[in-house]
Design a protein around this nucleic acid. Structure first.
Length: 203
DNA sequence: ACCGCGATGCCCT
DNA sequence: GGGCATCGCGGTA
């Protein structure tokens, strides 16, 4: 198991978003490792991207971490109740990020289940299993990621991403989700997912 | 299957 | 004060 190093993140978010597919997102809570395979991502490309929080060079306390070094977490609250987890990419000063939109549970699936539904995995309905981590807010709930992790170094040992096992999957490119306000940028195919995976948020 | 809507709090080109 | 990189529910079909 190899933890991704800073050079991996220090590239354009379009490249990183595609290469993150199949990798393992790990939250290490005092030795208990919650693990999910990354199956869906979105690239946000900074000052020129009308859908990005950093569009037009917007630089507020919330988005500040995106202007720093690559390989840190950008976590923000959406709709007053959900968190979204992003990876900061590209060089310092270039505020790119990749939103992790869906993961497939890999380790401690009962913890996923408890965190999402306060039930054991065995007690879940089919729909609940499907809903464990197939969305950006859901996966943060499942992995216990909240805004306390904003600015967390992903090259550390609490929250990190490691190489997956398989690379023989087909990648689908699609429009990003929930950005209708972004004019022409809403049609860019900057969302990527593993074809036929059961945990994709939207097809 | 899709469609509408309310929840809820932080952010603020 | 308006809007949001979302989710779950209840309605109609």
């Amino acid at each position: 198991m190899i933890i991704l190093h800073r050079d991996f993140y220090n590239r354009d978010s379009l490249v990183v978003a595609k290469e993150l597919l199949g990798k393992h997102l790990v939250h290490n809570i005092d030795g208990v490792k919650l693990v999910g395979k990354i199956v869906e991502t979105e690239a946000y490309r900074g000052t020129v991207d009308k859908a990005a929080h950093s569009y037009g060079g917007r630089r507020t306390p919330r988005v500040e971490v995106m202007y720093g070094q690559a390989g840190y977490a950008y976590v923000y609250l959406i709709y007053g109740m959900y968190n979204c987890f992003n990876v900061v990419t590209n060089k310092e000063g270039i505020p790119h990020a990749v939103l992790i939109r869906a993961i497939e549970p890999m380790g401690f699936i009962d913890a996923f289940s408890q965190n999402r539904y306060q039930k054991t995995y065995k007690e879940l309905s089919k729909n609940q299993i499907k809903g464990l981590s197939n969305g950006p807010g859901k996966l943060c709930q499942a992995l216990l990621i909240d805004r306390d992790y904003n600015g967390e170094d992903l090259c550390g040992n609490r929250l990190y991403i490691s190489n997956g096992k398989e690379n023989n999957f087909e990648i689908v490119s699609a429009k990003r989700v929930g950005i209708d306000y972004a004019k022409e940028a809403k049609d860019f195919l900057w969302r990527f997912y593993i074809k036929d995976n059961a945990y994709i948020s939207v097809k």
